[in-house]
């Protein structure tokens, strides 16, 4: 059984994550906030390829995305943890296929990434403007988790279908 990380085309698909993060299509956003593309790619990858691969994929994505952002808060810890957790779910639990389950997992994952970023920002900006940061953080947290949870059933189920076929081949 071929693993996903041994197939160049599957590895190359990860390039869509930084590309879509930079492109930030405005037509796919909620309150100006787009979906978390890293979560949408990492979820099917980790479910198919296992916890170690998911952990490493989360690490690689986190490094790239941190390099593309202004700095300060990092996505790295949350993405690594999600890659590991989803990999374990894919290995030990019955295969996850339902659209609702995928949407829920993506929503939880984005919420964890958002919570991690929010807490880091609050720690970094602890000296001032905490109340202002609360309103901004809450808006971004809710908008991003919701739009990612809505997009996931369409995108993740399709990626999961293709990658499971490739992994069985």
């Amino acid at each position: 059984m071929a693993r996903l990380h041994q197939q160049p085309i599957c590895l190359a698909s990860s390039l869509f994550v930084p590309w879509l993060t930079l492109a930030a299509p405005t037509w796919l956003s909620l309150s100006g906030v787009g979906p978390c593309w890293a979560v949408l790619w990492l979820l099917p990858w980790a479910l198919v390829d296992g916890p170690v691969s998911g952990f490493i994929a989360g690490l690689c994505l986190g490094l790239v995305l941190d390099g593309l952002s202004l700095g300060g808060a990092s996505q790295l810890p949350a993405l690594m943890a999600l890659g590991w957790w989803w990999g374990r779910l894919g290995r030990r639990a019955p295969p996850i296929q339902g659209s609702f389950n995928l949407g829920l997992l993506a929503w939880i994952g984005t919420a964890l990434v958002g919570l991690s970023l929010w807490l880091q920002t609050l720690l970094i900006q602890f000296d001032s403007s905490v109340s202002w940061l609360h309103s901004w953080g809450l808006n971004t947290f809710l908008a991003q988790s919701l739009i990612t949870g809505l997009v996931a059933p369409l995108l993740v189920s399709w990626m999961l279908l293709i990658w499971r076929r490739l992994a069985r081949a």
Binding site: A24, S31, G32, V33, G34, L70, A73, L117
Partner: peptide, 8 residues
């Protein structure tokens, strides 16, 4: 590239 809203 433009992200006027969001975390960054």
């Amino acid at each position: 590239s433009r992200t006027p809203q969001g975390w960054w």
